[in-house]
Design a protein around this nucleic acid. Structure first.
Lengths: 251, 251
DNA sequence: TCGGAATGTCCGATATTTCGGACTGTGTTC
DNA sequence: GAACACAGTCCGAAATATCGGACATTCCGA
C-alpha cells in the first residue's frame, strides 16, 4: 500500500488514491494518524490532503472523535458509475418525446442523498413555461416524484431518512410522516404519483417510476402541468408517463 | 466549475475533484477535450491526470471512442459510504460470536463488482484450519454465499452479470446457469445456502443472507466446515447463522 | 486530394506542493 | 503532578508536477 518512489516524495493525486484505497480496505472510520502510518504519508501532508477532501465531501469526519470515512460525494459518483450513463441517455429521448406528445414540461429526477433533484428538464411549448433548474435539491415531500422514490421504505425508515424540516412545505403547511407514507403506498400501487399545489398553488405534478432490476425506484419521469388541466388530458399523460417509465426500467 | 486561481496554475488534487464533479454533472461518458474546456484545464494536464485515474480504475474508457466515465472504484467507495462502516463493525462481533459458538471458521462476505469477496475472516479453533484470505475475489458460482448475493436477479440478468468463465469450477466442472439459478431460488426460499465440494472436495460452506431495507442481499455471513460434519451440528450452525444474518440486516 | 479540426504525445522551465521537523495543546497513565 | 503519547498546525527549502506550445496522427468534409 505504501507509495514507493526513489526520493520518498509523492504527488498529491497518488496520495489521494492511496488514501481512498486504504479506507476501502479498512471498511470503517479511520484515524488520520493510521492513514499516515499505513500509507507511508508524512503527517503534515496527510492533514493538508484530508482537509481538502473533507471540503469536497469526498471524506467526512465521523463519530466526533478524529476519525474520517468516505463522504456523500463518493456515493454520487458510485451511483453514476452503476447507471453507466446509459439510462440517462435513454431518459433524454423519453423526456423529449413526452414534451412533443403533451406540450408540457417534462423532467427526469432522482434522489441525491436525502433530497430530490431534477436531472433533466425539457420545457414545454406554452407561452408561460413552468420549469425548474436542473441540479437543485428539493425536500422529498414537496414533490410527486418523491412519493415514488422512497416507496421501498417503511414508516420508521422514512422518518429516519427524511429530515424533519423537509415535511414543512414552502407555504408553511406541515405534512405528517404518517400521511406521507400513506400517499407513498397509494402511489406505489397505482403505478404513478399525482400532486397539486405542493410547491406552488397553480401546478400539478405527475410522475411515474423508473425501477431497477430489483424493483427499486431509482428515478422518476414526470410532467409539470397547470392545475386546471382537464381530467381526460391528465389520464392520457399518466399513461404516456407510465409507458416511458417502463421503457426506462429495462435499460 | 472552472478552477480559479491567480496564476492559472492549479494543483492536481483540485483538478481531480473538478473532473469528477464535472462527470457527475454530465451524467454520461464525456470526451476528454470537453473536460479540458469546461473545467478550464490545459490539455496536456488533463491527459496526464485522466490516464492516472484510468490506471486506478477511478475512470474507465467508454464506448470505444475517446470518451471516459466513472470506473468501478467509485462504486466500491460509494457502497462503503452507504454502509457507513456500521454494518462491518456489527459484523465483526457476529463473526467472532459464531467462531466461539461453533469453533469453525466464520466469514463475512460481499459482492465486489461481479465477484464474491471475503471481507472478514475469523479462523476456527481446529488444528487444521480452513480459511481464506480477505479481499481475494472469487467467481460467484464457486460459493454458497454467491447463491444468496444474486437472489434478486432473474436468469437472463444472471447470465449478463456473471462472466461465462466463472461458471467453470476450479476442478473443471461446469455449472449450467439454469441449474445455478435454480439453486439460487432454493437458497432464497430456505433462507440459507449450503454447498459441499465446490472449491475443494473436503469443505462444506453454509451461508445466511444479510439484507438491506429493500430486502436486497447486500452481504452474507458464513461458516466453512469439514465436509464430514454431522447433520445435527449443521442444523444448529445454520440456525446460528440465520440469527446473525437477521441481526445484521437491521443495522 | 487537400485543408482544417480533433485527438493525443512530448519536452523544458518554473511556480508550487510536498516534506521534515519544530511547536502547541490535550488527554492519559503512573 | 510529571512524563508521555497523541492530535493538529505552521514554516522554509527544494524536488517536481503543471503548463504552454510544438509536433505527430487520424478523421472528416469539401
Amino acid at each position: 500500500m505504501t507509495i514507493e518512489q526513489a526520493t520518498g516524495r509523492a504527488r498529491g493525486i497518488d496520495r489521494v488514491i492511496a488514501i481512498l484505497d486504504y479506507l476501502h480496505q479498512r471498511r470503517g472510520p479511520v484515524r488520520i494518524a493510521d492513514i499516515a502510518r499505513d500509507t507511508g504519508t508524512p503527517r503534515s501532508t496527510i492533514y493538508e490532503i484530508v482537509n481538502r477532501l473533507v471540503d469536497a465531501h469526498w471524506l467526512e469526519p465521523r463519530d466526533g472523535d478524529g476519525t474520517v470515512f468516505f463522504g456523500p460525494a463518493m456515493h454520487f459518483y458510485g451511483s453514476a458509475y452503476l447507471e453507466g450513463g446509459d439510462r440517462i441517455r435513454a431518459a433524454r429521448g423519453e423526456v423529449k418525446r413526452l414534451v412533443e406528445q403533451t406540450g408540457e414540461t417534462a423532467q427526469y429526477c432522482t434522489l441525491e442523498g436525502d433530497k430530490y433533484t431534477v436531472v433533466l428538464n425539457e420545457p414545454g411549448s406554452r407561452t408561460f413555461r413552468i420549469s425548474s433548474d436542473v441540479g437543485v435539491k428539493v425536500p422529498i415531500p414537496w414533490t410527486a416524484s418523491g412519493r415514488l422514490l422512497v416507496d421501498h421504505l417503511a414508516l420508521e425508515e422514512v422518518k429516519a431518512f427524511i429530515p424533519p424540516d423537509d415535511f414543512v412545505l414552502p407555504d408553511g403547511r406541515v405534512t405528517a410522516p404518517e400521511d406521507f407514507v400513506a400517499e407513498v403506498a397509494r402511489a406505489k400501487s397505482a403505478g404513478y404519483a399525482r400532486t397539486t399545489g405542493l410547491v406552488d398553488r397553480f401546478t400539478t405534478c405527475l410522475a411515474a417510476p423508473v425501477r431497477d432490476v430489483g424493483g427499486r425506484c431509482v428515478a422518476t419521469i414526470c410532467l409539470v402541468v397547470p392545475a386546471d388541466t382537464g381530467e381526460d388530458d391528465l389520464a392520457a399523460m399518466i399513461e404516456a408517463l407510465r409507458a416511458s417509465g417502463r421503457r426506462l426500467s429495462l435499460a
